[in-house]
């Protein structure tokens, strides 16, 4: 059997195909799936080509929140004025491969690919993104921070399609931080990565915080325990150090061909220090 493609021209058609029980792999920008195909790591399957669906077309609409249509690419964000309100999205987009990947790779695809080393997902998660999952049966919305359950395991049924991503508009005062530690400056896979956001009170106490990491766990990890340690407290050197130590209990890095557990642990703590020493 070889690879086949179904190209639906309406959402009903697409959701109907997904509901048929046959396993279909949604195909957006193809920048990950083509790599797996070429490497022979993807078993022959039938793809659901999303390119012709109007409902999923690249969009960046602001209506109380930011909605990214499922086919919205990294480049779409990089060249959009939306980057003023969501600077971290633009920073993250820059980190995905290089320009030619950014023209095709999609945010929703990054979510669905579920790589622990995703560059886009941490930024989305730090902005409290929610995912629209549509099926013939229902339309539901789930928080991205609760979407992953294990390595490449996620809260998406085979009959569901990621239709859009929603990001609440940031309130004034939040400061964003995004730092990818890769094997080189661009065109790199992260060894560890921190997407952080912080809101300080007038007296420099932490009113709210998000800390999301890549490449140090089987999936993109929001470090809720470490966040809790600093929330409500003033960012003294002692508190920062406490957070830098606490993160060690939340991450599960491994040795692989790109780096070592030891390195990932140390640098992840360094990222926490760097972020909180703003």
């Amino acid at each position: 059997m070889s690879f086949q493609v179904v190209t639906p021209y309406s959402l009903d058609e697409a959701l109907g195909a997904l509901a048929s029980g046959e396993k279909l792999v949604p195909l957006a920008g193809a920048t990950d799936l083509m790599v797996y195909m070429e490497a022979g790591t993807l078993a022959p399957c039938r793809f659901l080509n999303l390119q012709e669906l109007d409902e999923l077309k690249p969009t960046l609409s602001v209506n109380g929140s930011l909605t990214l249509g499922a086919m919205t690419t990294y480049r779409d964000v990089r060249v959009s004025p939306i980057r003023e309100q969501f600077p971290m999205l633009a920073w993250a987009a820059r980190e995905v491969g290089a320009l030619a990947i950014q023209s095709r790779g999609t945010w929703a695809g990054n979510v669905a690919n579920a790589s622990p080393a995703a560059d886009g997902v941490p930024a989305l998660m730090a902005y409290d993104a929610e995912i629209d999952l549509w099926s013939k049966k229902e339309r539901r919305r789930v928080p991205l921070a609760k979407f992953y359950r294990g390595y490449k395991e996620m809260d998406r049924r085979p009959d569901e399609l990621i239709a859009a991503l929603h990001l609440p508009l940031p309130q004034p005062g939040w400061v964003d931080y995004y730092r990818k530690v890769g094997t080189r400056r661009f065109q790199a896979i992260s060894k560890t990565l921190l997407a952080g956001r912080i809101l300080l009170d007038a007296d420099r106490a932490v009113r709210d915080i998000r800390m999301v990491f890549a490449s140090i766990a089987p999936y993109t990890l929001r470090a809720v325990q470490t966040e809790a340690i600093v929330r409500g407290r003033e960012l003294t050197p002692e508190v920062i150090e406490e957070a830098a130590q606490a993160i060690q209990d939340e991450i599960h890095p491994i040795d692989d061909i790109r780096s070592t557990e030891t390195y990932r642990r140390r640098v992840t703590s360094n990222l926490v220090r760097d972020f909180l020493s703003l």
């Binding site: 290089a98 080189r184 661009f186 896979i189 061909i257 790109r258």
Partner: peptide, 16 residues
């Protein structure tokens, strides 16, 4: 060679 992929063998790009 175990990291026998362009992705995993790091040569300097323009930016490095």
């Amino acid at each position: 060679m175990k990291n026998n992929q362009f992705t995993n063998y790091i040569i300097p790009t323009t930016a490095d």
